[in-house]
Simulated scan of single mutants.
Amino acid sequence: MKVFIDGAAGTTGLEIRDRLTGRTDISLITIPDDRRKDEGARAEALNAADIVILCLPDDAARQAVALITNPDTRIVDASTAHRTAPDWTYGFPELVGHAAVAASKRISNPGCYSTGFIALVAPLVKAGLIHTDWPLTCNAVSGYSGGGKAMIAEYESADSAPSAWRTYALGLAHKHVPEMQAHSRLAHPPLFTPAVANLHRGMIVEVPLPASAISGSAKQLRQALGDHYAGSRVVRVVADYDQAGLPVEHLAGSDRLDLFVFANEATGQVNLVAALDNLGKGAGGAAVQNLNILAGLDEATGLRL
């Protein structure tokens, strides 16, 4: 299977390449560094590949898609460009179905925060346990690698002193919000407040729910999530977590996604929590999982589970 990673030098591209290195079922098409921005060289590689993975800014990803004229080339796009496009399949196989991913030629890789939020909310909305018209809020924190090379350099430079915790997207229009709303089938966009912590990788996504937002108990919510993800080797619903806190590094270095339902039985309040690696199931790991499914391989091949 011939694979070309367009944007292989970026943070997500490097993560994907690392997971593919040494595999005998994948042949990587590469372009010399001095020709990476040569449109002719890129077009040749894009059309020679069985599967292309785009690790590019949105506009560059759209341009790359326009360069593909080979009708047999399939695409996994890790940018935001096509995540709500009707003619693209959302690359969350545990949500849309493995068969839908396998049958598609255009896959949009989910965003990292979106993966945690949608994994928690979508099955519960579908089951009627979260009111679809409730104004949901979402709090989340990521390692600084989620900001790409520029933010990594900022945090790791000897001359800089970045804060331990930095909230951002203060205009309440983070680029992940449209896919969070669309793929969870919500009537209103969630109020999303992300932050960056002074650590390289890891992610926690929280969706706090008052009793009036849900129909059912915490036990029913946990059971519904467990039923939805039953048999998955990538997504796990944790029912017996008994630690005092959940660190953002919980799944750093893993391609797994852990889901939790915490509750105060007296008040009926629930906190849905997802833990993942922003570079794993939140980016490179998800892209490799989709690649495996498109290639007809075991979805977990090369994943760190």
Results as ranks from 00 to 15, higher is better:
residue 162 P to D: 12
residue 164 A to R: 12
residue 164 A to G: 10
residue 166 R to L: 15
residue 166 R to V: 14
residue 167 T to A: 06
residue 168 Y to Q: 08
residue 168 Y to W: 09
residue 169 A to I: 05
residue 170 L to Q: 13
residue 172 L to H: 12
residue 175 K to R: 14
residue 175 K to S: 13
residue 178 P to Y: 14
residue 180 M to V: 01
residue 182 A to V: 14
residue 183 H to V: 11
residue 183 H to K: 08
residue 184 S to N: 07
residue 184 S to Q: 08
residue 184 S to R: 11
residue 185 R to W: 11
residue 186 L to E: 04
residue 188 H to S: 12
residue 191 L to G: 06
residue 192 F to T: 00
residue 194 P to R: 01
residue 197 A to N: 02
residue 198 N to H: 15
residue 198 N to L: 15
residue 199 L to Y: 01
residue 199 L to G: 00
residue 199 L to N: 01
residue 199 L to S: 01
residue 200 H to N: 01
residue 200 H to L: 06
residue 200 H to I: 00
residue 201 R to T: 15
residue 201 R to E: 15
residue 201 R to F: 05
residue 202 G to C: 12
residue 204 I to F: 10
residue 204 I to D: 00
residue 205 V to N: 03
residue 205 V to T: 02
residue 206 E to A: 13
residue 206 E to S: 08
residue 206 E to Y: 03
residue 208 P to Q: 08
residue 212 S to R: 11
residue 213 A to R: 07
residue 214 I to M: 06
residue 216 G to W: 03
residue 217 S to N: 06
residue 218 A to V: 02
residue 218 A to E: 07
residue 219 K to H: 11
residue 230 A to L: 07
residue 233 R to P: 11
residue 234 V to N: 07
residue 234 V to T: 02
residue 235 V to G: 05
residue 235 V to E: 08
residue 235 V to A: 07
residue 241 Y to W: 08
residue 242 D to V: 10
residue 242 D to A: 08
residue 243 Q to G: 12
residue 246 L to G: 04
residue 247 P to W: 12
residue 247 P to S: 10
residue 247 P to I: 00
residue 247 P to Q: 03
residue 248 V to R: 04
residue 251 L to R: 10
residue 255 D to N: 05
residue 256 R to T: 03
residue 258 D to A: 13
residue 260 F to K: 07
residue 261 V to Q: 02
residue 262 F to I: 04
residue 263 A to N: 02
